[in-house]
């Protein structure tokens, strides 16, 4: 375990080197929150609630999902893909480390970077300037439990996408497709509460809603029962386990087919 934490530390230190990257991501994320505010303000107009959600709920929900989106943006699949295509993966495979855990702990270091320099300032703006309010109760505790699971889920999906480079030797198309699918189907673009009933039912069986919708709706909705919270976390945990297993099988299969580039 210490070995992987040491990797996380190095990734975190590396992340801190890219100051310009963080400044610009922070600015663009804040701009996005401002846009969200005025967009949803105008959508609501004079109405108090739409689809059972108040303006404040939607605004907090959207700000939380967009902040989580930036938080989980570790470029993991690009890293994995670049390592595979350039052949740098050979050096990694000569270390006594599990590839999946190595990649995940590396990405986790990046997540810490994001949390520190992007997500926390964004939340400060949300509550400090826009005076958004959230109900405080069990929901905050369950949000804190739900977030790491969501993070793991997002990283494992990215890992699987990155591994496809073993076969395709290119990532652009598949990564942008994934990005759109995840963003729309997870509530990252529009709250899932705005989707038709049938669609919501289908989505509840897919892993994507567990990334953004679950933590965001837990935080904004204090009316849920403890049983609701635990079942939501249960679904997240189940998907994490399923995808971890799938990605491990995929890796052990893909690495057999490997023809490592560059001599």
């Amino acid at each position: 375990m210490r070995r992987y934490l040491a990797l996380t530390k190095c990734a975190f230190l590396t992340g801190m080197v890219w100051r310009a990257h963080f400044i610009f991501t922070l600015i663009s994320n804040l701009a996005y929150i401002v846009i969200l505010y005025f967009l949803w303000k105008s959508i609501y107009g004079v109405s108090q609630t739409l689809n059972g959600m108040t303006f404040n709920q939607v605004f907090v929900y959207m700000t939380v999902t967009s902040s989580i989106f930036v938080l989980f943006k570790t470029w993991l699949e690009w890293q994995v893909s670049r390592d595979i295509i350039s052949g740098a993966i050979t050096t990694q495979l000569t270390k006594p480390l599990d590839h999946q855990l190595m990649v995940l702990s590396h990405a986790f270091g990046r997540t810490l970077n994001n949390a520190l320099v992007i997500t926390l300032p964004a939340l400060a703006v949300l509550f400090g300037i826009f005076r958004a309010s959230i109900p405080v109760g069990w929901n905050v505790l369950f949000f804190c439990l739900s977030l790491p699971l969501a993070c793991l889920l997002s990283l494992v999906i990215d890992y699987i996408i990155g591994l496809t480079s073993f076969y395709t030797e290119s990532l652009w198309g598949i990564s942008t497709t994934k990005e759109i699918i995840v963003l729309v189907l997870s509530g990252g673009l529009v709250p899932l509460g705005f989707f038709p009933e049938v669609m919501r039912n289908i989505l509840s069986y897919l892993p994507f809603q567990a990334i953004y919708h679950t933590p965001a709706s837990i935080l904004t909705d204090a009316s849920l029962s403890l049983a609701d919270y635990t079942s939501m976390l249960g679904v997240q945990a189940a998907w994490v386990i399923v995808l971890l297993v799938i990605s491990r099988l995929f890796f052990s299969q893909a690495v057999k087919a490997v023809t490592i580039n560059g001599g």
Binding site: L7, A88, T90, T91, K95
Partner: peptide, 24 residues
Amino acid sequence: FGQRTQLWWDLPVIESFKLLKEIY
């Protein structure tokens, strides 16, 4: 592998040694 490096590109050299200490 002579054309690649196991060292961390953006970090001081000593950090890579410390990391390898943990890894092994």
